[in-house]
Design a protein around this nucleic acid. Structure first.
Lengths: 206, 206
DNA sequence: GTCTATAAACCGATAGAC
DNA sequence: GTCTATCGGTTTATAGAC
């Protein structure tokens, strides 16, 4: 019994995809734990359970490996945004995105980016697949921001850029880490607190 | 003419202090630009204009060097806090601290910390002079936070920890970097925008 | 493709002359 | 104390056998 070439090829491709996904899982976790600079290729290989040289058969450099991981993360965010009901107010959809990001962050699966200072930032900007996803996500969020402002749900006096960047930045907010370290709050509480201060600020009585 | 021993000793000490201050200036700038991990001792030495080996006559390790720089930064913050008028409302004093920090950040003299993930964080926690300053600053800010909450100027429903950590975190807010990169706002505008979103949030109409 | 072994570069820290 | 030169260790990336 000889399998037909197409099926065998498909199976091989599936195996390849599966292996590369396992690699990206490890990279994602290590990026979240230690950041790009402190993450070593030896660690990634050990975490996946393969030799370091084998990594380079799948990804040609550490930068491209991290870029691929970040691209997959953006795809998750885009998928989440697409799954949000259109009947929800745009402000709720924006909060849902932040909720997802902060939850991932607390779970240890959110890379430390965005940070202007990270050495990987430059490599990311020269990696078209990442730029494309970032553009897609930015467009979707920007649309919701405009709608929320038109409805009066978000301050119309604030430039859209400021709101957009703030939402991105809160995905990696160290406040969540500090609160988790303190141990006085549950992860659900921490997420709620971060979302509340982000959107409502700290001066408003509730 | 032979100078008196006390005067000569004082002069030598002054020279030493001056040199070490120049070193810490360079460290502070490099920590702000690249962070601890990417900062090399060769760079620090080149920036100061001395040999790398000479650095180790003043500071015994890279960690201690960074810790000394961070300690000096905290002393600046404490001095700023002490200089604020007692006639000001506590909320205004808290905003003034954030204003100072974000301005330093935009000027390229604010190290990337705090960040739970930085490899230096652990060294910092084992460096008593740093801990002491951090405790002093935390106490002062905590006092103002309580006063502001009692006055109704800050939300009394928010745990003080959350407000404190948020103030610390906004000192290194990447939003300021993004807005600066965008080039559409002056540095004064950026500082105002960050302070506004931090304290008033993004939903309130103004 | 996966492995072991190694090359090439870099970095923190030190030795030793002055 | 400052310098030049170098050690020891780590890291990215590759060579070559299987």
């Amino acid at each position: 019994m000889i399998e037909t070439p197409p099926a065998k090829l498909s199976f091989k491709k599936q195996q390849l995809q599966f292996r590369e996904n396992a690699i990206l899982d490890a990279v994602n976790r290590l990026l979240a734990q230690k950041g790009f600079d402190l993450m070593t290729m030896d660690e990634v290989a050990a975490d996946v359970g393969i030799a370091k040289a084998s990594l380079y058969k799948h990804f040609e450099s550490k930068e491209q490996l991290a870029a691929a991981s970040m691209t997959r993360l953006l795809e998750s965010a885009i998928a989440l945004a697409a799954a949000l009901s259109d009947q929800q107010p745009p402000l709720d959809k924006l909060k849902a995105v932040v909720r997802w990001a902060v939850t991932e962050h607390l779970g240890g699966t959110m890379p430390l980016l965005p940070s202007t200072r990270s050495s990987i930032q430059q490599a990311l900007m020269g990696y078209p697949p990442y730029i494309e996803r970032l553009s897609t996500l930015t467009e979707q969020l920007g649309e919701w921001i405009e709608q929320a402002q038109a409805q009066g749900a978000l301050a119309a006096s604030l430039p859209g850029e400021v709101i957009l960047y703030t939402i991105f930045a809160r995905s990696c907010d160290p406040v969540a880490d500090f609160l988790k370290m303190g141990g006085a709050f549950s992860e659900e509480d921490i997420v709620d607190l971060v979302i509340h201060t982000t959107f409502e600020g700290m001066t408003r009585q509730s």
